[in-house]
């Protein structure tokens, strides 16, 4: 009974969410819609990033690189042959890539698969040995991606980047993918695979003594997370319509790190909440960096100020509030209804 009630409540909330989006789509400003799409993409990224860092406990610094891989993979497949001919002025594009053009949805799938394959290639050397080598290899890959993208003119168009992408990404795509990602991640986490990931996080030796192949489980977590980051990259590419190798800076990864830490490392619910807060709040904090007129004073705006603030927040949370907003607990209808009942009874008294 509780299961069907929960399912009903979930479907109902999704209905509310999508009704709100429908309303927003026709009533909100372009700028607000852009923020809403950013939120959806950041939820997608944060939830999948939390899987490898928070659930499986393997410190990856890869999201920006995976975003880039996904963005390029999907953009290469959606651009029309004519556009490719126009853009690739220094070196023509490699055949058959130059003539292929697929629908947006297919390109997102390709983006996910290519990115997951890249993750598996990275996992092979890294997860064979214990230690925090994933951090450094995934960080290094971000730099190497730029080098490779700049130098493979006939695939990526080098530093010129890819221009003229169709703005396929809209509110429905971004939120649809977002909901899909959250659904898949939650299902995985609640299965035996998710438990095995947590076991590896808690004690790798004990996990292996219980028959868990830590290498495979870590690789699964990493590839799964990369898949959705790649898809998010495809979304992002067709939102901003122009991509270049240097676009996907480490800043993306750092923002995501802050999100999952503030939300509570290991909690999918926390990642969602924090993604909303930080994406929205981050917009609000932009005024630190932009010239503004505050109370009659001309404020010049300081680039980097937001990042100083963010790094201080990250360190402070790590030192003093390690469990973030949610700790490792998750939202459940059971808990939410109980909480509401509790509040109501307090009010009656």
């Amino acid at each position: 009974m509780a299961v069907s009630r929960d399912r009903l409540l979930t479907v109902f909330s999704l209905f509310i969410l999508f009704s709100f989006l429908a309303y927003a789509d026709s009533n909100f400003s372009h700028y607000t819609l852009r923020i809403l799409q950013n939120i959806a993409i950041f939820i997608t990224l944060a939830v999948s990033y939390n899987l490898i860092n928070g659930i499986a406990g393997q410190f990856s610094l890869g999201p920006n690189a995976f975003l880039a891989v996904g963005a390029y993979a999907s953009a290469i497949f959606t651009l029309s042959p004519e556009e490719k001919l126009r853009s690739f002025i220094i070196e023509p594009m490699l055949w058959p890539l130059s003539v292929i053009s697929v629908p947006f949805a297919a390109s997102l799938l390709i983006a996910g698969i290519v990115t997951a394959l890249v993750a598996i290639l990275m996992a092979m050397p890294v997860f064979r040995v214990r230690g925090d080598y994933l951090a450094i290899v995934s960080l290094g890959f971000g730099e190497v991606f730029q080098v490779l993208a700049n130098n493979s003119m006939s695939i990526t168009n080098g530093s010129l980047g890819l221009k003229g992408l169709q703005p396929y990404t809209n509110l429905w795509w971004s939120w649809g993918i977002c909901v899909f990602t959250v659904f898949c991640t939650l299902r995985l986490v609640n299965s035996s695979y998710g438990r095995a990931m947590k076991a590896v996080r808690e004690d790798e030796t004990a996990a292996e003594a219980m028959g868990i192949n830590a290498f495979r489980i870590k690789t699964l977590a990493f590839a799964f997370s990369a898949f959705f980051q790649g898809v998010a990259g495809g979304l992002l590419a067709h939102l901003i319509t122009t991509i270049s190798p240097s676009l996907f800076t480490f800043m993306f990864t750092f923002n995501l790190l802050i999100i999952i830490v503030i939300g509570g490392l290991g909690s999918t619910t926390g990642s969602i909440i924090a993604a909303v807060l930080i994406t929205w709040g981050g917009e609000a904090l932009r005024f630190f960096e932009e010239p503004a007129n505050l109370f009659g004073f001309q404020y010049e705006g300081i680039p980097g100020m937001r990042m100083v603030l963010f790094s201080v927040i990250l360190i402070l949370v790590m030192l003093f509030a390690r469990s973030g907003i949610m700790g490792r607990s998750e939202f459940s209808w059971e808990g939410a209804l109980g909480w509401i009942k509790n509040k109501l009874s307090v009010m009656k008294v």
């Binding site: 406990g57 990042m307 790094s311 990250l314 790590m318």
Partner: peptide
């Protein structure tokens, strides 16, 4: 846990 120290280290670097 070690991952906390690593995150803090990234934070210090960025700071």
């Amino acid at each position: 846990p070690r991952i906390n120290a690593l995150i803090t280290a990234i934070g210090v670097s960025f700071l």
